[in-house]
Amino acid sequence: MKKTKFLNKYMVPILFLVICGIGIYIARPPLAYLTGELARRMVRNTFLVLALIIPILAGMGINFGIPLGAMAGQIGLIFVTDWGVVGVKGLFLAAIIATPIAMLLGHFSGRVLNKARGREMITSMMLSFFILGIYMLFLLYLCGSIIPFRNNKIILSQGYGVKNALKLDVAKGFDDLLKFNVNIPIGTQKIAFEVPVFTIILIVLLCVFTIWFKKTKIGHDMRAVGLGQKVAANAGLNTDKIRIQSIVISTVLASYGQIIYLQNIGTLNTYAGQDQAALYAAASLLVGGASVSNASIPNAIIGTALFHLMFIVMPQAGKALTGDAMIGEYFRTFLSYGVVTVALIMHAYERQRGLEEQRRNTRLKVQKEIKAN
């Protein structure tokens, strides 16, 4: 029974571990390349994945609306690039600009999601598409016309509108602030990767904040709302306000996560940079063994490692098997969408089973009371 529960709980991470193991066996990538690439992806993506935990605590499910926060972070980076502020100063200034925008978008998102109880995830996804239209209108028509821009290199030839791709002057601002290299020889190969200490400190601070937040009054209130909104409301909690607060926090954290992600890459895809933020972050969290009703920091870290290990290995495995790396790329895309789909189906199944069990227990209780009388 315990083995069955364990397998049911950790079925997805075990499956991904097996897939990654098979991929490594087939591709046999150099250990230095594998560890270096995985370390870069972990540093780049973990903050965004951790931003999903607090809404799950409040019973909002996976916040597929984090592209709203990503857009806010990108707006901050665009203004910083126009003003010519570089390095760490530019990144912190971008975060300051992004914060009020993310708070406003998060509050709007939370109010909308309160009107769509039980359908928060699909609603947040559709909401991100709606805000994307406003985001594009802002960058294509307002920037350079109504909002003055000084740097003509980032403006389209027509005199207004931001270009599709920007090279960021703040690239590696956090990563290069404090770092060291790790080189550990193992036989004929070696483990080699760069450790961006300051970026890791930011990720650790978010982990500490999440642990601390869960122990605060508002954290306990969110947990109560997540366990049962009606019970929490009867206990005097303002469930609507608490749910909005969880989305605001998640959206603000997502804006910071996108800034960390983009400074690591060094370039900004202006109009599509936020497209995959929600999908890849959600898939990473679910791969780590989380569900849409329960998630933790280890789920986020383990899931990010496994999900991006698959991203590294599969194209090489596909090339080794078929001579075409695109085969592995297709398989990787299939799995990233498939994990989210399977996890949502499993959640719906478990929820339905729980409701049926609750109804059965209630019926048995009533029957016992009738017999006793």
Rank of each mutant, 00 (worst) to 15 (best):
I211S: 06
G173K: 03
I203N: 10
V204E: 05
K172I: 01
P185Q: 05
G173W: 04
V208A: 06
T199H: 01
L202N: 04
K163L: 07
W212H: 12
V197T: 09
T199M: 05
I211Q: 14
P185N: 09
V195A: 05
L205E: 03
T199W: 01
I186M: 09
I211E: 11
F180H: 05
D175M: 13
C207W: 13
V208Y: 02
Y160K: 04
F193D: 04
V162Q: 03
L166P: 06
N164M: 07
F174G: 06
I184R: 15
L168D: 13
I201Y: 09
V204T: 09
V197Y: 06
L205D: 11
F174L: 12
L205R: 03
L166C: 03
E194N: 04
L206N: 08
F198D: 06
K190R: 14
A192E: 15
D169H: 10
T210Y: 09
I200W: 13
N181F: 11
A192M: 15
V162F: 09
F193S: 04
K163P: 00
P185I: 02
K172Y: 08
A165R: 12
Y160Q: 05
I203K: 08
G161V: 04
D175S: 13
I184N: 14
Y160M: 05
L206R: 04
I191K: 11
V208F: 05
A171P: 11
C207K: 11
A165I: 08
G173S: 07
V170S: 13
V195P: 02
L177Y: 01
Y160A: 02
I201R: 08
Y160E: 03
V182G: 00
L166G: 01
E194R: 02
K167D: 05
F174E: 02
D169T: 14
G187C: 15
N181R: 10
F193A: 01
D175K: 06
N164P: 06
K163W: 09
N181P: 09
F198H: 10
L206S: 01
A171H: 15
V208R: 00
K179D: 00
F209K: 03
K163M: 11
P196M: 00
L206C: 12
L178V: 07
V204L: 14
F174V: 12
V182Y: 01
I203P: 05
V195G: 06
N164D: 15
D175A: 14
V204C: 12
L205F: 10
D175V: 15
K167V: 09
N183C: 14
V208C: 07
F198Q: 09
T210N: 13
V182E: 04
K179Y: 06
K190N: 15
N164G: 12
D176K: 04
G161R: 01
N181V: 08
D176M: 06
N181I: 09
D176E: 10
V197E: 07
T210Q: 14
F198E: 08
L177E: 00
V208L: 08
